[in-house]
Structure formats: C-alpha cells, structure tokens
Amino acid sequence: MKILVTGTAGFIGFHLTNKLLKEGFEVVGIDNINDYYSTELKFARLKEAGIPEEAASWNRKVKSTKNPAYSFFRMNLEDQKEINQLFETEKFDLVCNLAAQAGVRYSIENPHAYIQSNIVGFANILEACRHNNIKHLVYASSSSVYGNSKKMPLATSDYVDNPVSLYAATKKSNELMAHTYSHLYGIPTTGLRFFTVYGPWGRPDMAYFSFTKNILADNSIKIFNHGDLYRDFTYIDDITEGILKIIQKAPEKQPPYKVYNIGNSSPVKLMDFIETIEKALGQEAKKEYYDMQPGDVYKTFADVSELEKDFAYAPNTSLEKGIGEFVKWYNSFYK
C-alpha cells in the first residue's frame, strides 16, 4: 500500500513514517518545515529518515538514502495546485494528515496561521482525496476539542461545541469537514483526538521538553494554575501502534466516518509529572507558579473504550519508562 503522510518532519509524523516503513508500506512524506519551532530539529528528523537538509527544496521529490520506499516533498498544504499534482502523479491508496499549525497558546497570537494550515490546507487534502479514489483518510484532531468539559473521562459522544482556543476550533472544524466529505462523496475518514503525546524527538513547545531543558540549564520552570492541572500523557509508540491499526481498517457504515480518542486513559497531575522528570534527570527543578493561561484546559482524560473494542488498542508504556526514553534521547541529541 502507498500512503501519504503529511507533517512527516513533525514529531508524530516522523515516528509514524518509521513505523509504516518497518511494516512494508511505501511512504511519501510532505512537510513545509515552518519555523513555529526549531527547524534544526525538523531537519534532524528528516536526516534520521535519510532526507538530507540540502536536498529538501520546494515541491521536488527527494528519495531517502536509507530506505528506497520513502520519498519526501517540501510542500505547503495550502498550495492547492501542488497538492493536486502530487495526488495525481503519486497515486496514493491511503492518506494520513498530521500536518497542522500546532499549539494552543500560539493560536491566540497568530490566528491566521491556523486558518491557512488547518482549514484551507485540510480542505485541499479532502478535495484531493475526493478526486483521486483514496481508500481511507486518517487525520489528526485533538483532545482540545473538549474545551473545559467537567465530565470525565472525555468520550467522543460528548458535546464539543465550546472550544476555548482557535486551535481547538480548527480541529473541530476538521471533523465537521471530514463528515461532510464522507457523507457527500463516500470518502472513508477517521479522525483521531490525540491526548498529550510525548517521547523522543518531541516538540520543544511541549511542557515536558521545556521543563527538561530548563532543569538541565538550572533555570526555573513555569508552572501554570499553581500546578493544579491534569494531563493524559500518551507515549509516542502507543500512538503510532494505534494509528497503524486504524489506517488499515476504514469505517464501513454509512457515512464511512469515525472519530476516536487516542490516549493513555490515565491522567497524571502536573506536579507528579514534573517529579518523574526530576527523577529521570537526577536534578530538582526551580519552580515558579502562575495562574491559568488563556486557552488552557484544566484536565484531559481519554475514554478509549471504542478504540479498545474496534482495534484492541492497549497503551502499555508507563510514565517512568516514557520519560526515561525521552531524557535519554534529549541528552544524546543535545549532548
């Protein structure tokens, strides 16, 4: 099977691409390598997959030097002409759309980036799927669609019409757009509401990454809502294992549309999470406490019973092991 993975220089995209190649898929990756966070890290992920930085020029196919089944295009989702041409020439069976402008807090400062990438870009992917006989489109949604829901655990049947950030609003929009295309054109689509994914090669804008960086540099860390926050931290290998299963089985009922939570289903208090990082680093953090930030939610806790039932999904990486793997990678990568 030939699959397009968008956002392949991103954290989840990088790990998923590796997983798919190991499973024998032919993978084409695209990414615009924007500077929302360190392009050095994005290029390093590509290099790890056999795509040298100097070869990653715009809208040009680059073959991996490490795996003949992987090729890469530097491309914008918003570029409708290039996206259409890519689909017509490469003839994909499956699409996994992970490319998006990420980050809740940044969406407050730079809303237009989210509309372009997450709304316009996703519309281009849907249209390309419609005209190129794609067997299954899997796309990234987010746990942020639940807003500040008090009901726990969060289930896909819950009301999700009160987003507290523009990022969340764009992800909810993606689900609605996908439903429309499944209904009108019979395109099988599956949305995945990710819950706080972490692990090696992770994103520098995520709390665990900045905590680690600041603790090692002996700088203080910022703790919001005075530490009274809970997150359903999910290790990257548990995420890619789930995606791999889902990609290969499209929804069958009409319309062929589905949304799943994909998380660890085990929320951790922020202060306990910080303590786990401190233990892994063998160093205590200097802490500064702040009020809740705009756009943040108090707690995330995934009900993954549907994913368990349909795909025997069972995340099994403990927080200690996952943080240990991240710290090991961090020390190695940043020396």
Rank of each mutant, 00 (worst) to 15 (best):
L46C: 12
K47I: 02
E48W: 05
E48A: 03
A49F: 12
A49H: 01
G50Q: 07
G50F: 11
G50Y: 14
I51L: 07
P52C: 11
P52I: 08
E53D: 10
E53I: 09
E53K: 15
A56I: 15
S57T: 15
W58T: 14
W58C: 01
N59K: 12
N59G: 07
R60Y: 03
R60W: 09
K61F: 05
K61I: 08
K61H: 00
S64W: 13
S64A: 04
T65R: 14
K66W: 06
K66G: 00
N67F: 11
N67D: 11
P68E: 08
P68G: 04
P68R: 15
S71F: 12
F72Q: 08
F72V: 06
F72H: 08
F73Q: 10
F73W: 14
F73G: 01
F73H: 03
N76D: 07
E78N: 09
Q80R: 14
K81I: 01
E82L: 01
E82M: 07
I83C: 03
N84A: 07
Q85T: 14
F87W: 06
F87D: 14
E88C: 09
E90Q: 13
E90M: 14
K91E: 05
K91A: 05
F92S: 03
D93C: 02
D93S: 09
D93Y: 13
V95H: 15
V95R: 15
V95S: 09
C96P: 11
C96D: 14
A99C: 05
A100G: 12
A100N: 04
A100V: 08
Q101H: 07
A102P: 01
G103Q: 07
G103L: 13
V104T: 15
R105F: 09
I108W: 06
N110P: 00
N110T: 04
N110V: 01
P111S: 03
P111F: 04
H112V: 01
A113L: 02
Y114H: 02
Y114E: 01
I115N: 07
I115Y: 11
Q116R: 14
Q116F: 10
Q116S: 12
S117W: 00
N118V: 00
I119F: 10
V120Q: 06
L126A: 07
L126K: 10
E127D: 12
E127L: 12
A128E: 13
R130V: 00
R130H: 12
R130C: 07
N132I: 14
N132D: 03
I134R: 13
K135N: 10
Y139F: 12
Y139H: 09
Y139P: 02
Y139C: 00
Y139M: 07
S142Y: 13
S142V: 06
S143V: 05
S144H: 06
